[in-house]
């Protein structure tokens, strides 16, 4: 490969322009003074002011964050268990069904998952009287279900990369199994657990379709609020909201990526050092 891949670099530039021009355009228009969302009428920050004084938006944002925190935490616990089970236990009854169950939600169209979950909750209410009404609880349960499989995928791929022989060696050297879990397995998958939690948190915070089906009166998350507004057309305050979201997520991802990258490098350096010293 001594030639510069001009075609590939051009495609990259074209692709990134395609990715980012709509987002940048939306950010620029969030500072538009005009009420007509697509016609420029001078610079203004009034949409940010009106957005931040809108109680409905703030309540919905707080509710979304609560649901995302709760569902991401439960999804991480269940998803990590499933990841460990699939990576470390080769034979158990129903393993094939189990691995199917953790892959299917990844690709299942959301509309189908949405109506299926809603019908489950309605029939449960009919038959056992719980959940009495749909809202916070049912949305959280549905979010845990579809986000846990993302955690499983991340933890599982981390565990199959890590060498199970290290765990075996620690056992041979006299470690108690709980020590192996605490000192080897968990530290090895810690970055995967963290990225799994972050992913579960974001997809819960972002979800429209499944929330739309499983929520009830009075439980309006931020995406549902935006959804009901944008169905009516482009409005300048949604541009402002989108800009804030993109900036927060952008900074969050950049910082998380930087921290994970640094931790990875340090661990590689430590491993290298340990190897050199023991030669």
């Amino acid at each position: 490969m001594n030639r510069r891949p001009v075609f590939l670099i051009t495609m990259l530039a074209f692709g990134f322009a395609f990715f980012y021009i709509p987002i940048l355009s939306m950010m620029v228009y969030s500072f538009n003074a005009s009420r007509l969302a697509t016609v420029w009428g001078g610079f203004s920050t009034k949409w940010y002011v009106s957005l931040l004084s809108n109680r409905q938006v703030l309540t919905a944002a707080v509710l979304s964050i609560k649901i995302a925190l709760l569902s991401a935490t439960f999804a991480t616990i269940l998803g990590t268990m499933a990841g460990i089970a699939l990576a470390r236990f080769r034979r158990f009854r129903g393993r094939t069904v189990f691995s199917g169950l953790v892959t299917a939600p990844l690709v299942m169209p959301e509309v189908i998952t949405g109506i299926a979950s809603l019908m489950l909750f309605i029939l449960m209410a009919e038959w056992i009287g719980w959940p009495a009404q749909r809202g916070f609880t049912t949305v959280t349960l549905a979010h845990i279900t579809f986000s846990m499989v993302f955690v499983t995928t991340i933890v599982h791929s981390r565990l199959v990369q890590a060498d199970a022989a290290i765990e075996e060696a620690a056992m041979d050297l006299g470690s108690r199994p709980w020590q192996v879990m605490r000192d080897i397995t968990l530290p090895v998958i810690a970055p995967a657990i963290l990225s799994g939690w972050l992913l579960a948190f974001t997809i819960s915070l972002d979800d429209v379709v499944i929330t739309n089906f499983t929520t009830g009166p009075g439980t309006t998350t931020l995406p549902i609020l935006i959804w009901s507004k944008v169905k009516l057309g482009v409005t300048p305050d949604i541009n402002a909201l989108a800009t804030i979201t993109v900036l927060i997520v952008g900074f969050g991802v950049a910082i998380a990526g930087w921290l994970l990258n640094r931790a990875e490098k340090r661990r590689e350096a430590d491993a290298h050092l340990a190897y050199q010293e023991n030669r």
């Binding site: 972002d206 995406p223 935006i226 482009v234 949604i238 909201l241 979201t245 997520v249």
Partner: peptide, 9 residues
């Protein structure tokens, strides 16, 4: 970032 907002853009 939000799927919904990317469609909206």
């Amino acid at each position: 970032t939000s799927f919904l907002l990317r469609v909206y853009a």
